[in-house]
Design a protein around this nucleic acid. Structure first.
Lengths: 153, 153
DNA sequence: TTATCTGTAACATATAAAGTAACGAAACCC
DNA sequence: GGGTTTCGTTACTTTATATGTTACAGATAA
């Protein structure tokens, strides 16, 4: 399978929603992400459940932020999309009978757990507003006035 | 795809090879790992190329250690099997044109790079001999005299 | 009522590790 | 030498899972 890009995509979307006055439809967001509207709804469902975004049906409907970006951390988003597995490596089996394998897997597991703790701690430190201001700096640096992801910022 | 278990498997094998006086055939190792002899040869090829193990053809042939386990770190093994990607998450595209996406991916990438550095540093600290002594403790604690992975330790 | 939306279910695709079959080459035994 | 064992390698198939797609029901506004 490909690398899981849901976290990256949701952060991307949230920032655009913040800079976008009107509601954005799944279709608009999908084009922005280079994907499909169903994929967008599927992934955004978790953010909605956690109250980070709202969605409205019908004419003029779509998605909008339900909270300030300064109040949402990367960890919040990561958890909202279901806290998918961070690592591509792991033990060879769940419950090995072999004591050697148990020792190896325990050691690896400890190391991976530590790494996961650090990653989560780091995610918790950064708000989406922080990322947005990173974008502002890039934008100012380039002094560009063109299109940004097919959606004006 | 499944979680990559090559590192776990190779560590497992190396410890067994250390406790096993005779050479072990790919088939024997495969049974120990619950897999196939070709998978074993394929994965062990990297360890052989780095000089951690040797293999001999024909009658009485098979695999044997070429270096003391105290001289091989987890990082050595990880690198030997091709330093596969550690993370299951990543950016949505390689070269995003969108500045928002660039900011998001850069921030995530920094975080992941830090995590990778920490993981590699930790892997470098631990030798296979360290893992083997973990096993010894488990073994002593259980006072078991039975089979261990179909291969007596 | 009709055109837009979201929400879901159901199914198809892509990717890479893992699994499998086949065969050649090397080393050993008789 | 001839047969057997074992590695080395190629060329597949399988598997798991995020992603992509189609279809359709339900909700909302003009």
């Amino acid at each position: 399978m490909r690398r899981d890009s849901r976290l990256s995509r949701m952060l991307h979307v949230l920032i655009h929603m913040d800079r976008h006055s009107k509601r954005m439809t799944s279709e608009t967001i999908a084009q922005m992400l280079g994907t499909n509207a169903v994929v967008v709804r599927r992934t955004m469902a978790g953010l909605k459940k956690q109250g980070y975004v709202r969605s409205e049906n019908g004419h003029g409907g779509g998605w909008e932020l339900a909270r300030d970006l300064a109040g949402i951390s990367l960890l919040d988003v990561y958890l909202a999309i279901g806290a998918p597995s961070l690592f591509a490596i792991g033990p060879s089996s769940e419950n090995p009978a072999c004591l050697v394998e148990q020792a190896v897997d325990t050691a690896l597991d400890d190391t991976m757990r530590n790494a996961e703790r650090l990653l989560r701690a780091r995610f918790a430190e950064v708000t989406i507003a922080d990322l947005a201001s990173d974008f502002d700096q890039r934008y100012a640096a380039l002094q560009s006035s063109g299109e940004i992801c097919a959606v004006k910022a």
